[in-house]
Amino acid sequence: MKIAVTSQGTGIDSKIDPRFGRAAYILIIDMSDEKVEVIDNAENVNAFKGAGIQAAAKVGDCGVDALLTGFCGPNAFKTLAAAGVKVANDVSGTVQDAVDAFKNGKIVFSDDANVDGHW
């Protein structure tokens, strides 16, 4: 099983980037061996429009089961839902904290976006 976490840096000790669509990096963590794959999201940071949709499609392509982030907008949420990715909002601390919380079953998944578009 793989999970995605939005991150301000490339390492697992980096802080979580609270924004989803325009996060600096998205880390894909394979929960079986905690191997980290880094997705550079620079292209979306400066996207004209629809950064959330684009980032969501990318995360969907990675075959992850869940996304852990701070704030996820409605269009991104819809795209992630279509790709079968569960979303947990309001996750903070470091990426490692999020991974640990996920392992311990402490992550609560959302039923809806937690911010409006263009947040």
């Binding site: 996207a47 004209f48 429009k49 629809g50 950064a51 949709i53 684009q54 969501a56 499609a57 969907g60 392509d61 795209t79 992630l80 279509a82 790709a83 079968g84």
Partner: peptide, 9 residues
């Protein structure tokens, strides 16, 4: 360029 169309899975 406006990300109107997304492929999700």
């Amino acid at each position: 360029r406006f990300n109107v169309i997304a492929i999700a899975g």
